[in-house]
């Protein structure tokens, strides 16, 4: 995706930034060096087949795996013990942030995302009134981008959640980041809305690295859900150009 972007980006400075990002990806792969020094918080979503019966503490097992992986791969330890009262490093990048859900069938689907702090900081949740509608959602997305995109390492992948409740809508936005860029939304209404949001974001001129240009975002991905009759929750989770996620099928 980024490779083709270099040819369409019209800003010379934007092109120079995209070329740095491509060279970065090649070096990271060849030398086994992380693409970004912020190797992130680990977010894991386990979708367990409903026909399975799982005993034991899944969350504890995830934390053991995270601690081992961060140690062995020389990744950065980026977590503190308490947000307010003890900002000493936990030393092993745990705890991971784990969701557990169910899906039909056997086995499990495991999603893992490493998310940098800068782009998560630039994210937001707003509780709109239902009559704000599609226009309201568009405003929240564009305001998040306008206010904070330059520090979130564009070109961005933007996850948008609409619906559910105050606590769940942010998770919806994060899950929206999991969809592969080459898989458009199955719902044509949603696909059209995503395309419209992407073109509005890219008309801001913020550009690669926020230094001016066409490509502020590479994709906008939206997930919607039921919600209360009085509510229109919206969450925007900005993903940086180095957002890293993988989906693994286990035993199905």
């Amino acid at each position: 995706m980024l490779r083709s972007a270099v040819t369409t980006e019209r800003s010379p400075r934007g092109q120079a930034v995209l070329e740095q990002l491509l060279e970065n990806a090649d070096i990271a792969q060849a030398d086994s060096v992380p693409v970004c020094q912020d190797t992130g918080t680990v977010w894991v979503r386990v979708e367990l087949g409903a026909e399975e019966c799982l005993c034991g503490d899944v969350v504890a097992e995830v934390n053991v795996a995270v601690a081992q992986a961060y140690h062995d791969a020389h990744l950065r330890m980026s977590l503190v013990n308490d947000a307010l009262f003890d900002r000493s490093n936990t030393g092993d990048n745990t705890p991971a942030f784990v969701d557990i859900a169910w899906r039909p069938g056997t086995g499990a689907t495991v999603h893992v995302m490493l998310k940098g702090g800068g782009s998560d900081n630039a994210s937001r949740v707003e509780m709109l009134a239902p009559d704000a509608g599609i226009e309201g959602v568009r405003r929240v997305v564009l305001e998040a981008v306008e206010a904070r995109a330059t520090g979130a390492c564009p070109p961005l992948l933007i996850g948008v959640g609409v619906g559910a409740t105050f606590d769940k809508v942010a998770g919806l936005a994060k899950r929206a980041l999991l969809r592969r860029l080459d898989e458009p939304s199955a719902d044509p209404k949603l696909a059209a809305f995503e395309a419209e949001l992407l073109s509005a974001v890219n008309a801001t001129g913020i550009g690669p690295a926020g230094l001016g240009g066409d490509m502020t975002a590479i994709g906008v991905q939206v997930l919607t859900a039921p919600c209360h009759i009085a509510a229109l929750p919206v969450a925007v989770n900005l993903g940086c150009c180095a957002v890293r996620s993988v989906t693994i099928e286990v035993g199905s």
Binding site: P34, V35, A242
Partner: peptide, 13 residues
């Protein structure tokens, strides 16, 4: 000065 975010393998060189 602004450096490019997300290019840390390159910048390390």
């Amino acid at each position: 000065f602004a450096a490019v975010g997300g290019a840390a393998a390159l910048l390390a060189t």
